[in-house]
Simulated assay, not measured.
Amino acid sequence: MAEHTFEKRRALSLAILTKGERLTRKSGSFLGQLIVDPTPMTPAQTDWFNTLVERAGLASDGGADV
């Protein structure tokens, strides 16, 4: 899995939150955490983030494999 910068992860998280489609409270909280916390994600968090990116239609923008 490719490593991506905090800034890219932050931008994708903001884009997903701005779209606001199909987000649960848990998903919104997770994305908010990613916006402010530069700590590397665990493999499980990375999988969940990639799922959220794909659902938001941002995977074609280089969002997959974050």
Score class of each variant (00 low, 15 high):
T5D: 15
L34E: 00
G57T: 05
T51M: 11
D65K: 10
P38I: 08
G63D: 00
F49D: 01
I16F: 08
A64Q: 05
L31F: 06
S29Y: 13
M41A: 05
K8M: 12
R55G: 11
Q33F: 09
W48I: 03
D65V: 05
A11E: 15
A64C: 09
T39D: 14
T39S: 14
L31G: 00
L17A: 06
F6D: 06
T42C: 08
V53D: 01
G32F: 05
K19L: 14
L12T: 01
R55C: 08
S13Y: 02
R25L: 15
F30W: 09
T42S: 15
F49G: 02
T18E: 14
E21T: 04
R9I: 09
R55K: 07
G20H: 07
A2G: 09
L12A: 02
V53Q: 00
A11L: 13
Q45M: 06
D37I: 12
A11I: 12
L34T: 02
T51W: 15
L34I: 05
A2F: 13
H4Y: 15
F6L: 08
A59L: 07
R25M: 15
A59F: 07
T39L: 12
K19I: 08
N50C: 12
E54R: 08
R9C: 03
Q33H: 12
L23G: 03
L58Q: 03
D61I: 05
E54T: 06
E21A: 08
M1S: 11
P40Y: 13
V36D: 10
L17I: 07
N50P: 03
G57E: 04
V53M: 01
R55Q: 09
T18Y: 14
M41S: 03
P43C: 07
S27P: 04
T51V: 10
M1I: 09
P43D: 04
P38H: 07
G28D: 02
H4D: 11
R9E: 04
G32I: 02
V66D: 00
A2D: 13
S60E: 15
M41L: 14
T5Q: 15
M41R: 02
E7K: 14
K19W: 11
A2K: 09
P38G: 10
A15K: 04
R10E: 10
T18K: 13
Q33E: 14
E3M: 09
T42A: 10
T39K: 07
Q45G: 05
L52E: 00
R25F: 15
G57P: 04
G63Q: 00
G20T: 04
K26H: 13
L23Q: 03
S60R: 10
L31Y: 01
I35N: 02
E7L: 15
N50D: 15
R55Y: 15
A15T: 06
S60Q: 08
A11H: 09
D65N: 11
Q33D: 14
A2H: 10
M41V: 08
L23D: 03
G62Q: 05
L23E: 02
T5Y: 15
L52D: 00
L14H: 09
L12M: 10
A11P: 06
E3N: 08
A56V: 04
R55F: 13
G32D: 06
V36A: 12
V36M: 09
A11N: 11
A64P: 02
D47R: 10
L52N: 00
G32M: 06
V36E: 11
